[in-house]
């Protein structure tokens, strides 16, 4: 129990009197990749945002490495450094170059040495195949390239867990693959991740565990993703997966 990296206890979230999350319990272990799927508006993105202290919560607790995470607590900034997050909309800072985007937080927030961080940034950029774009501005990049940079920007903080919130949902289809390939490589190298996605083939390939969300609850949880995608146990999950077939 105590070696889970992230643990969520009975998490409740309401918004304008609508209940978005109805008591979520979840434990994420080190090196584990959990994929959350479910229809739009089921609360899966909200869950990720709660985990990074971007949303007020109305009940329950979130622990990261045994420490309680609270949105308005003083240590929230240092907690957030341990949680990397990539959003659906491209969120690079438009007034900074690729390299400046990546270096900003490690240099200014973590106070690391610029030369050391820059060397690591170049290594990561090499890994995602964008080393030659380091001096470009975000507007010069395609959506897929921006998302790969956003992943590098999160990784350079050395987060303990990476939250990916539908990072390919706003991309042109031909760019989805290049981004997901980067995420697959991360999973292979042992990153701990919580991923919300609508890419079912990707979910099946990458997940150690799959959660099917609906109406703010975990409807089905499976430690055997392949089996889940072939034979979901609940009727609701079956219906949902069927909507992806033609």
């Amino acid at each position: 129990m105590e070696n889970s990296l992230l643990s969520i206890k009975n998490l409740h979230k309401e918004f304008d009197r609508n209940t978005i999350l109805k008591g979520i319990n979840l434990k994420l272990n080190k090196g584990e990749v959990i994929v959350i799927i479910g229809p739009s508006g089921c609360g899966k993105s909200t869950l990720l945002r709660c985990l990074n202290g971007l949303e007020d919560i109305q009940g329950g607790e979130i622990y990261l490495g045994g420490k309680l995470l609270q949105k308005n607590a003083k240590d929230i900034s240092s907690m957030r450094q341990k949680i990397g997050m990539v959003f659906q909309s491209y969120d690079l800072f438009p007034h900074k170059t690729v390299l400046e985007n990546i270096l900003l937080a490690p240099v200014k927030v973590q106070k690391r040495k610029r030369a050391e961080v820059e060397a690591e940034a170049m290594e990561l950029l090499e890994r995602v195949g964008l080393a030659d774009r380091k001096n470009d501005y975000p507007r010069q990049l395609s959506g897929g390239q921006k998302q790969r940079i956003a992943i590098v920007r999160a990784l350079i903080m050395h987060p303990e867990v990476l939250l990916l919130d539908e990072i390919t949902a706003a991309l042109d289809p031909e760019m989805v693959h290049e981004v997901l390939q980067v995420v697959l490589d991360l999973a292979k190298s042992g990153s701990t991740m919580l991923i919300v996605t609508h890419e079912m083939a990707f979910a099946k390939a990458i997940a150690d565990r799959v959660l099917f969300f609906e109406h703010g609850e975990i409807v089905e949880e499976s430690h055997a993703p392949k089996a889940f995608f072939e034979r979901p146990q609940t009727e609701r999950a079956r219906q949902f997966l069927k909507s992806f077939e033609y």
Partner: peptide, 8 residues
Amino acid sequence: ESAMALGM
């Protein structure tokens, strides 16, 4: 939000 997520 993305700046917050970077711990700023």
